[in-house]
Write a protein that binds this DNA or RNA. Structure first.
Lengths: 254, 254
DNA sequence: CGGGCCGTTGACCTGGATCAAATGGAGTGG
DNA sequence: CCACTCCATTTGATCCAGGTCAACGGCCCG
């Protein structure tokens, strides 16, 4: 099941057998971590790269007033910062949401594999660029979209990201966030998340029960929140068709 | 004046004379660009790296409904993505806010300088990691902070970033954004931005007129929005003292 | 002098936060 | 098997921060 990473990287570009084999070599000591545990805390100086093999984790910060903001969701195949070493210390924490399987990859192993396999180096770069793109889209999401489309957008994004690592069947995937966690992610109150989910259910767009989310009508959900997948920069998946979906107007000139 | 980049990189770690000289070599054909022009548009496939020498630019997206979201401000010394080449196409646009001086650095020049100067390669890495950190902080800002502190936080951040490239004198810097642009940045309405600025003025925290911002009481403004500069990862500036400012509680354990 | 852009202000109204309480399910222990 | 606890979800009621609409004023520039 740890081919999540390989599979994800191959949605960027195909890898040679050697490269795939080298990637498997990164996965040595797999750790099982309970839900709601910190993997790294703000202020730490990590000396390993973390790779999520299974489960959901998140980057988050807690403001002095207790307000917690989740800034990213990490799903199977996701790294937390391939180059953290360069920074003095973590400026945010990373914690598990569900039970996770995690690998600690020593810095040196990353260095070696990227030296020996330029294709992997490129693919790793791609990962961090995509992470940035996702982050920007989240900013757009929170800053610009109404709560219903905001949540719908998150669900669409996760559908595609999880699809890319083979965690989706019949438009349905495990979605372990509590409503409060969704609230902390989307900058909403938990009460309002509840009502918004109800609305999405009433619209016949989703079904969410017992931590399993089913998207009842993918195309309608995407249209509903004007989801444009370009920012995920997928190439080789069946989702990655290069087309301008829902892209009427261009930026106005000054 | 183009030592903005050098100066910024040296707030990460000192550079040798050779490295500094090589950096200057990157700056060849400087372009002057009017305010409100696109430097790169969504969908483009850029073949140069852009470096801002002077002026303000921004990353933005325009949603199908016309809503515009600014996702980052680029100030002197800022790059737009050192590795865009890896991606198929831009997923957002970059446009100038004020008149800007911009350099187009060919991909090859970047490759060469990083090969010959590992310290610069590290420093470039640091840049992109900091960009990511800033982006995350913006997410926290929009998702978690009330409008007044949100704007105050932006002003604090800019103070420090501009300070790092020598664009601040007497706690005062050029701030070319219109109120509408601030609104598009902060996920607020322009009317409310206006009132919020008035509030900050009334509190005696800032003075903003004719595109020049003066922070009347830096410490009070920082305290006001609970500004924590750790995410900027500055080391060698007088702001970069390594201390846990305003950091009472730790993340709770599950 | 006139037009356009930007900032400012007032009036109104609504979306979403907040508070509070009830329901339901999963686990635990008697 | 039932009682009890702990949490997440659900729902109702209330309130206000901030969006929306509209008008005006100032400034720059042609």
């Amino acid at each position: 099941m740890q081919q999540a990473l390989t599979r994800k990287l191959e949605s960027f570009e195909p890898l040679s057998d050697q490269a795939r084999w080298a990637l498997n070599g990164l996965v040595l000591k797999v750790r099982q971590v309970e839900a709601r545990q910190d993997l790294i805390q703000e202020g730490d100086k990590p000396d390993n790269v973390l790779l999520i093999l299974d489960g959901f984790a998140c980057r988050y910060k807690v403001l002095p007033d207790g307000q917690r903001q989740i800034m990213a969701l990490l799903v199977p195949g996701d790294f937390c910062d391939l180059n953290v070493f360069i920074l003095d210390e973590m400026d945010h924490s990373i914690g598990t949401i569900s039970t996770c399987q995690v690998v600690d990859i020593p810095r040196r192993a990353i260095d070696e594999i990227t030296v020996h396999h330029p294709s992997i180096a490129r693919a790793f770069w791609w990962c961090s660029l995509v992470d940035g793109a996702v982050l920007r889209e989240w900013l757009v999401n929170i800053g610009g979209r109404a709560p219903v489309q905001r949540i719908a957008h998150l669900l669409c994004e996760l559908l595609m990201r999880l699809e890319a690592v083979g965690r989706v069947t019949d438009n349905s995937y495990t979605f372990p966030l509590t409503q409060t966690e969704i609230a902390d992610t989307m900058g909403l109150s938990d009460v309002h998340v509840n009502r918004t989910l109800r609305e999405l259910r009433a619209l016949g767009l989703i079904h969410l029960k017992h931590r399993v989310l089913t998207i009842l009508d993918v195309e309608r959900l995407k249209a509903f929140c004007l989801f444009t997948p370009n920012y995920l920069h997928l190439r080789n998946t069946r989702w990655g068709e290069r087309r301008a979906l829902n892209w009427p107007g261009r930026a106005q000139e000054g």
